[in-house]
């Protein structure tokens, strides 16, 4: 019997997840800039105000530090807040609260406090939003002990990661990728929560492992298809959770392919890609048959002009080229 599937988008899947969470648990509420009457700056929370009212779908002033801190305070006191920050660039105004309080209170209090807060923020280039709206800070946040960082890149994860994040007793940051909001596809009608612990093999292959997350997943899958046409069998791993990193899935793939390219929309220096590479060196150096390559963003503030923006971020051509170089190398 075919399972029931629905046609939907990444944006609608996120909306379904918010609606389900608010229906399931009275402790859940959403707050952020324009989440209510406006319906969300990217329309993710559209319709929720009518269904749940102003108490639980709470518009905030433009006070990122204030309302993120308020989310932490509410989480300390029995609620399960979801705080939306319009773009990850704006989250820097709340970085003090995220790092000095959300990530730190449990440890600093000797384990007495718990901050079950979920922060959603949008990241990623491709919409020509230029130098203050388009960056990818997933890797930065993944540097912080005390928080969990997840990056839904599929409809299933957009639908399923939120509830699991809310049930986590510690703060979780969900990075929604802006260019993916309009991604269309099919989703099981009864899709529900998914784990936020493991990386997943999105495409099986034998000769090279391509590791990525977030907005770069779809480009990496396209690159793998093209590599297949050229006779190179590529495996694609979606990290899904950047902290803690599931290295077991990466290493087990490497035991098969012995070659690795990491694709990461963050800036190259000190990137998440650098972390993955370092861990492979530490944990699986002798599995490697070729040096690891990475495809990252060029180290410039994101430019506005479309051709420049596209040149700044990882693209299918660059991923294929890096993979082919890696495959052709011999030790």
């Amino acid at each position: 019997m075919m399972e029931d599937r629905i046609r939907t988008t990444y944006r609608k899947a996120l909306n379904m997840a918010l609606r389900e969470a608010m229906q399931r648990d009275q402790r859940v509420f959403l707050m952020g800039e324009d989440v209510g009457r406006y319906g969300g700056s990217f329309a993710v929370s559209k319709g929720l105000l009518d269904e749940f009212g102003e108490e639980r779908v709470r518009d905030t002033p433009l006070s990122e530090s204030g309302f993120v801190g308020a989310g932490i305070g509410a989480a300390l006191n029995g609620m399960l807040p979801i705080v939306e920050i319009m773009t990850c660039n704006f989250s820097l105004l709340a970085l003090d609260q995220i790092l000095n309080n959300a990530a730190t209170l449990r440890y600093m209090s000797g384990g007495q406090l718990s901050v079950p807060l979920v922060i959603r923020m949008a990241s990623g280039a491709g919409l020509q939003l230029a130098g203050q709206h388009s960056h990818s800070f997933e890797g930065w946040y993944a540097n912080i002990p005390g928080i969990r960082v997840v990056t839904p890149a599929t409809l299933e994860d957009a639908r399923g990661m939120l509830w699991t994040a809310l049930m986590d007793p510690d703060p979780v940051i969900i990075f929604e990728n802006m260019p993916l909001y309009n991604l269309e596809g099919e989703l099981a009608a009864d899709a529900g929560p998914v784990d936020i612990d493991r990386a997943l093999v999105r495409r099986s292959g034998e000769e090279i492992t391509l590791v990525t997350y977030g907005g770069s997943l779809h480009k990496t899958l396209q690159a793998a298809e093209r590599l297949g046409d050229e006779g190179v069998s590529a495996e694609v791993i979606d990290l899904r959770t950047l902290r803690p990193l599931d290295m077991a899935t990466v290493l087990s793939s490497l035991e098969k392919t012995h070659r690795l390219v990491v694709v990461d929309e963050g800036w190259k220096s000190g990137s998440l890609a650098a972390e993955v590479m370092a861990r492979v060196m530490e944990q699986a150096f002798y599995e490697l048959d070729a040096p690891i390559e990475r495809v990252c963003s060029v180290e410039v503030p994101m430019p506005y002009a479309r051709h420049l923006e596209q040149a700044a971020i990882p693209q299918v051509d660059a991923i294929c080229a890096a993979a082919l170089r890696t495959v052709k190398r011999h030790v």
Binding site: F29, G66, F67, G69, G73, L76, M79, D96, Q97, N101
Partner: peptide, 17 residues
């Protein structure tokens, strides 16, 4: 100043509950 937003959020939770 970092504790002030926490106090507001904690009080919001008092009110909501």
């Amino acid at each position: 100043g970092g504790g002030l937003p926490l106090a507001v959020g904690y009080a919001l939770a008092q009110k909501m509950q």
